[in-house]
Design a protein around this nucleic acid. Structure first.
Lengths: 339, 339
DNA sequence: TTGAAAGCGCTAACAA
DNA sequence: TTGTTAGCGCTTTCAA
């Protein structure tokens, strides 16, 4: 039992307006059209009392928190920050608030966020993870709803998913390279088990095939989606018997690391070697040379996620589906025509 | 009235354990030490029923949402993203959830977030704004509590505030420049009304004075904390009768814009002109040359904010205070000794 | 220590 | 259209 100084309640408003609290409640929820005079009386009462409805009570009564959760691995990664930006705006527009969960690549934490659903902390969850899953997260996730997966798949989960068009993006990236005369094209990418990695690899192969270039396994380097791995990969690239004409990096972080590693090795980009990245994070046009990359619309992903999540909340029977957010090539300075 | 399929309630647990729900509630809240046998019975009941307490009910009952709000102008700005990262972690540690509000430099939105407090959507608010205020936000803010101001002041508000040590940071930045032989030092900064701008200007002047350099008003350029303004400022700098030896930029965004503008004008950094920035955003060591800058610990600011906010929530009578987060110079490549 | 019961402030079924 | 009233699932007072 609470014991703070009494705040004004809907009952006070009702009393002052000479109505029942049910009437006031209905008015507040737009469930009724009242005669103008009554509306005035209610509004006046609300004004004079400075009334604001207690959400805690409303939520218990309706069984809805009108809150959704957004789970991301980290928020200091601009990709997820943009996603959050889109999600927050769309949620606010719908009168929902957004609670932020940062997974930090920790399964236990991620599972903890899933639990938000059964304490009614949230009505639904937008979930982005970029860790290869060993099945633990999958099993838990299948017990909760509604959950919408963003950006990266958790294989074996039966939920609505929103990804970018990885294959098409990779295809365009590599075609951009082949169109500029590059034929010896390496691919530096993330952990092999990730769906995005597989799809981008597939787009890479398709573009090679289109240009009649043989796919060579030894030109594909798997690691992490990080700057550090990009730097390491620069060494691996140099160790190759023949220096590639170009590199398709599966993330801008990798591309930026590559840029640094290659510079340290005295290899000039794009004069000696062209690079295309993936994501178009905000730093992509800050580095030298400015990075040509595949733009992912993370904000749109966040928005779409909220929209579809709200739809599922309002109609729990809704069928699960999969959406692809289109990507586009952003041409900057890291690719030139091969002499 | 809710009509979903009944979920298991604390009453079900109590029934199964052969106790009253009061006892179970007390046990759950660690308000009692029960005989081991009783504990076992309760735990067993919870297990078999898969019970999880309904937070909505708990919140109404206690009158607390156990949620805090974090309001930032934008989250895609890495500075605020880091702040959010620190805040989320510290909040989670205390069992609080964090709801995100993005102000987008819109007073109405910001005031809307303040209202979260009187609907009990949150128990307290962490507030970061970087807009010069005309008094509107100030007046509203003084009506709400608990609110903690982060990073930038809203003059005239009587709330707990956490800022970085702007003056000291600026002082160290400029001293770094004077120590490298630069004497003709421009200062490109944000809107004059902002506290941070005033404090950094004061640190700039102090460092000049220490080096026996006369302060000259025409070397100070006010604009926005943006890359665009940095680019414009590059032109203003060139239009100066004598090119300065160095520039102290009051934000990394400005510094990066400056870098671009100067490069376009054929002025080399640091050979022709040295630059020090402020903030140490993640892009600062991605640009060429890597930016020497004053590191602000946004994550610590977020953590401190949560800690002090929780303290205020738990003791509303607590006196308002002001904290400074220390800053430090991060030396990279944008400053060299003046020949 | 334990339980009965009264709220917390709303919403919504039902009746008028 | 409007009001009466019974919950929503907890916490906490109060009495046993």
């Amino acid at each position: 039992m609470k014991m703070a100084e009494k705040e004004t309640t809907i009952q006070d408003v009702a009393d002052l307006a000479g109505l029942s609290k049910a009437a006031v409640s209905r008015y507040l929820n737009h469930k009724i059209t009242l005669p103008p005079k009554t509306v005035e009386r209610i509004e006046a009462a609300i004004q004079t009392l400075g009334f604001r409805r207690n959400l805690l009570a409303q939520r218990l009564s309706t069984g809805r928190s009108e809150t959704i959760g957004l789970v991301v691995p980290e928020i200091s990664n601009p990709f997820y920050a943009e996603m959050a930006e889109g999600a927050e705006d769309e949620a606010a527009r719908a009168g929902y608030s957004l609670i932020l969960g940062i997974g930090r690549n920790d399964v236990d934490r991620e599972i903890e966020f899933l639990r938000w659903l059964d304490t009614h902390m949230v009505d639904g969850l937008l979930f982005a993870s970029n860790r290869p899953d060993d099945g633990l997260l999958r099993d838990q996730m299948n017990r909760y709803r509604p959950v919408i997966l963003l950006d990266e798949d958790i294989p074996g989960t039966a939920v609505t998913k929103i990804f970018c068009d990885n294959r098409q993006g990779a295809f365009e990236a590599v075609r951009h390279l082949t169109e500029h005369g590059h034929r010896h094209i390496a691919h530096v990418t993330g952990p092999a088990p990730l769906m995005s990695v597989g799809e981008r690899l597939s787009g890479y192969r398709a573009a090679l095939m289109e240009a009649d270039i043989r796919f060579r396994d030894e030109l594909v380097f798997h690691g992490f989606f990080s700057r550090e791995f990009g730097q390491q990969a620069a060494s691996l690239i140099q160790a190759l018997p023949a220096r590639p004409h170009a590199i398709f990096a599966a993330s801008d972080y990798i591309a930026i690391g590559l840029l640094e590693g290659l510079r340290d090795a005295g290899i000039r980009v794009p004069q000696d070697l062209s690079i295309v990245g993936f994501d178009d994070i905000s730093s992509a046009d800050l580095v030298t040379p400015r990075l040509t990359t595949i733009r992912q619309d993370a904000e749109a992903m966040g928005r779409q996620g909220v929209l579809q999540l709200l739809a599922t909340i309002n109609d729990p029977g809704m069928a699960v589906r999969q959406t692809r957010i289109p990507v586009s090539l952003t041409v900057r300075d890291s690719v030139i025509v091969r002499a």
